[in-house]
Amino acid sequence: MYTEKVMDHFENPRNVGEIPDADGVGLVGNPTCGDIMKIYLKVDNDVITDIKFKTFGCGAAIATSSMVTEMAKGKTINEALRLSNQAVAEALDGLPPQKMHCSNLAADALHAAIENYRDKQK
């Protein structure tokens, strides 16, 4: 039911972990619905220089988290804000339809982290 890319990111997730002195942290989902994603950012000169994630959830939740970190790394804040959940799913060659709404939150977590970074800048 999952594509090869999803399984690859599930089996070998990129950028797992935490950044203790992160410039921005984003958290979406809740344990009740079964998916929680937490994304940590290091930002230098408006560019995402490091990004890590921790996720509680199904295979799709872990794979999308991993994929979004790969897509966002090296991008500017504004570029990263344009990444959508849809784009993350497409980069994984698609997700099963029932996963599109519940486990496809990785871009939201990224955006939450960026928002947190911007709040800190104020």
């Binding site: 999952y2 399984m7 599930f10 089996e11 079964g34 998916d35 509680f56 959830g57 199904c58 295979g59 939740a61 872990i62």
Partner: peptide, 14 residues
């Protein structure tokens, strides 16, 4: 605790 069933099933299936 702290982990989700489907991700365990996928890992077990591997």
């Amino acid at each position: 605790e702290f982990i989700e069933g489907e991700s365990m099933l996928l890992s077990m299936d591997m």
